[in-house]
Structure formats: C-alpha cells, structure tokens
Amino acid sequence: MSVLEAHGLRVELPRGWSGRIFRRPAGGASLHAGNFQLPLQDGEFGDRSTARMPAGGCFVAVAEYVAGAGLEPGKGLFASRRIPHTLDPTAFSSRGLAHPRPGQAAMQHFFTATGRPFCLYVVVSGPRVERRRQLAAISGVLRSLRFSP
C-alpha cells in the first residue's frame, strides 16, 4: 500500500495500482488512479489513461473545479457533501463516459468536500461479470480518500 498526498488530497493505493495527484497552473487539484500503468501525462478526466485501459481495468479521477463564474461550492450540482464509498453498479453506463469507447462504462458524481467542489469520475472496462470485483477494489481506494482545505 502506497500513500499519495499533495494539494490537499490523500489516497492509499494498493499494489499494482498507479496514480498521481497533480495541479496545473491556475487550476484545481486532480487525482488519477488505476489498476494498470497510467500514461505519464494526461488530461483531468484521463483521456489517455482510459484509452489504454485493459479489459478488467479500473480508472478513478477526482477533479477539482475552480469556484466562481456561477459555480458555488455546496450548491446546485455540487450540493452533495459526500463521496460515495460503495458504488452502485447500475450507475455505470456508456452515457457516463467523458470519452466514449467500446467496452467501457462510467459514472460521475459531483460533490463538495472541505469547501472545494469536485467531480468523481470512475471508468471500468471489460465484461459485466468482472464488475463486482472491480467496484470492490475501487471502493477500497475511495474509502482511503481524504480531503483538506
């Protein structure tokens, strides 16, 4: 188990998972994690990472939005104050994909933590029979996630 901590985010990743916590200039913090080798550079919602996902792959992104211009933490789309630790398999569909690809399904959840607005974006690939194992692994990662102002 490795701990990644930066920019007010902290997560524990199991063996075999790769990940990063980064922030671009004038942008919010982002977390990427996956049970496969992530590319070394990528966009906030893992365009390159999800393009490389093997069957049975899991990808998690937590992307922070910058408040302002009508976006208020804790209100509207970001009203939720919690991040789901146990993911609902029925919440996954191809409609949730930011970058649609065959064999992949995704879910999105917007929330506010410690006054910071975030989007949780989870992508899984492969057959449905693998979904339970994938979501259990993702839940373990999400439970370890901590936020600070």
């Binding site: 920019h7 990940g19 980064f22």
Partner: peptide, 20 residues
C-alpha cells in the same frame, strides 16, 4: 519495484509497471 514519490512541482506520483 513500484515507485512512489513527489515531483519537483509538489505533485505526488506512484508508478506501477505494465506493458509500456
């Protein structure tokens, strides 16, 4: 072995080595 550490910009990173 997997590699975990920080970047000079203050980011955090963990590398696991697959097919690339």
């Amino acid at each position: 072995p997997e590699i975990a550490g920080a970047t000079p910009d203050g980011d955090a990173i963990k590398l696991a080595f697959g097919g690339t």
